[in-house]
Design a protein around this nucleic acid. Sequence first.
DNA 1: TCAAAAGTGTTATCCTTACACCCATGT
DNA 2: ACATGGGTGTAAGGATAACACTTTTGA
Lengths: 312, 312
Amino acid sequence: MATGEQGIRIGLSAVVIALRERRACVLTTVGEDGAAALPFGPFDPVRDRTFELALRAFVTAQTGFRLGFVEQLYTFGDAGRDSPRATPGPDHRREISIGYLALTAASADAPAADARWTPVLDVFPWEDRRGEGPAAAEPLVAGLRAWAGDDARRLARIESLFALTPAQRWNEGLVLDRYELLYEAGLVAEAARDQDRPVPATAPGRAMVSDHRRILATGLGRLRSKLKYRPVLFDLMPGVFTLSELQAAAEAVAGLTLHKQNFRRGVERTGLVEATGRLTTGTGGRPAELFRVSSADAQGGEAMGLPLPAQR
Amino acid sequence: MATGEQGIRIGLSAVVIALRERRACVLTTVGEDGAAALPFGPFDPVRDRTFELALRAFVTAQTGFRLGFVEQLYTFGDAGRDSPRATPGPDHRREISIGYLALTAASADAPAADARWTPVLDVFPWEDRRGEGPAAAEPLVAGLRAWAGDDARRLARIESLFALTPAQRWNEGLVLDRYELLYEAGLVAEAARDQDRPVPATAPGRAMVSDHRRILATGLGRLRSKLKYRPVLFDLMPGVFTLSELQAAAEAVAGLTLHKQNFRRGVERTGLVEATGRLTTGTGGRPAELFRVSSADAQGGEAMGLPLPAQR
DNA sequence: TCAAAAGTGTTATCCTTACACCCATGT
DNA sequence: ACATGGGTGTAAGGATAACACTTTTGA
């Protein structure tokens, strides 16, 4: 009988998010076939005392960045995650990957070596609702409808996840659900690749190595959801910032255009920021006041996040 | 150099929740030293295609229960999770455990073999705010204050997590945070045990094997949080139920006394339940109408949970 | 007839949404 | 002057919280 310890390897994958030029970006490396990959490090059960310490160490070593907020996402271990056809032989190494979400404050430093900052909305273009809004997803939805045919359950899922009827509202946190829907429908490059079908040229977004895009979707979804009930956005911000910059950051992460006044009122109500009294200059208009994270209880244990009032 | 594949074993731990006699209970087995343990199954990388299938199989085999809702919680793998003193030698097997939350509809069946249904609020008595409310946690808080001394950060954490000032409100989802606070303060039996100190007789709640109480805290916290934005409570309910039973279930899980009218209005607004027209009999008072989960879009993808309006 | 539990009506308050408008600077 | 972005006031609508009350059964 198999003892359950043969051929297991554990790796740590990091979804490292930072803001660059008002866009939410993820730290990627160049994978084997030229596609983007997440930073990945092996977990050594002898040397590494905890997952989190191992993660922080290898990300800093590989990229030079110090991670602030770190949170475990999910453990991925399904057989054939990247190639379901391959039937594992007895000598097959089972690869299990523990995904982590990490946030770093914006930094002007260029990443080391072959690391890149990839805008997350280039990977998931349909997650950006700031421009035309619902119209942006039109071609995608057409493809989904074709896949669904007259399957009522599929149609309901599409309508719900993409908020197609006016009654439903777009839930920006369901990044993974939408990606998995597109994967099932065969509309993303990975779906074709995993079945050795030719990848259509129209496949939306940037494909990634193995199941890394799924891991990234998990991370972005977690971050978006968390914005609303934990003060995580400040882990992406520099020490001082204007309220407009804060709003731009929230918009870049959530993929939504927010309502200015309501956002400000909401931020004020949380008490998470405090004015410094100093002003910016050269914003193109009236100088903005600079704020910082409130020194009071601010990051304190209590549930507190930022409002995300949509601007229609 | 260590290759990262020696001596790793992966196990699956299940936090299986069900309602028994109007209490939220967790399925436990009897651990080595007589303490309760979570059902645990090894993960066989050759035989098991996915974590979830393996989990469902071994729980059904061990206990006879079919699991409904299943969700991954967290992967626990810190060295010395149960005994930090032990320095791992080269032959030390590193045990990594993937925790899952599972919900089963109430069932009259007795669990098989040495399995038990343990009321979760017996494990975490301080999580029950239904009785005297804040007063129930008084002795605990005294212990925490003694530990904190005049450390302002510790005091703020205690006040926040236990909602000691009237301005703060009790957040029922922070089960893990409160357990970890108590562990750090050395007030739960596991903290003493892990440092070979004698376990004080006053240690609150029921201790569990290894770090299983931490895993259970993770599961209960996740379930409580999820109640509010996903229709998970129905996975604990029988096919038909009265609104009072639904409220009692929500109260048993959340550890709160809810406001009857507001709860009902809120449930109605979600559209998640529909009346059957039938009435109960023998409730001790006026017969109640029986409801069922709405057959419409009900479980549909959209975010929908139940309100938890506190009754002071 | 009374206790016990089911079920309903109504109001005050707060947060969200949405509207329109004024302010200060650089060009 | 005027474009650009910063910053503000106020009112309508809906959800929540809190109040007390009626209805229907079993003992």
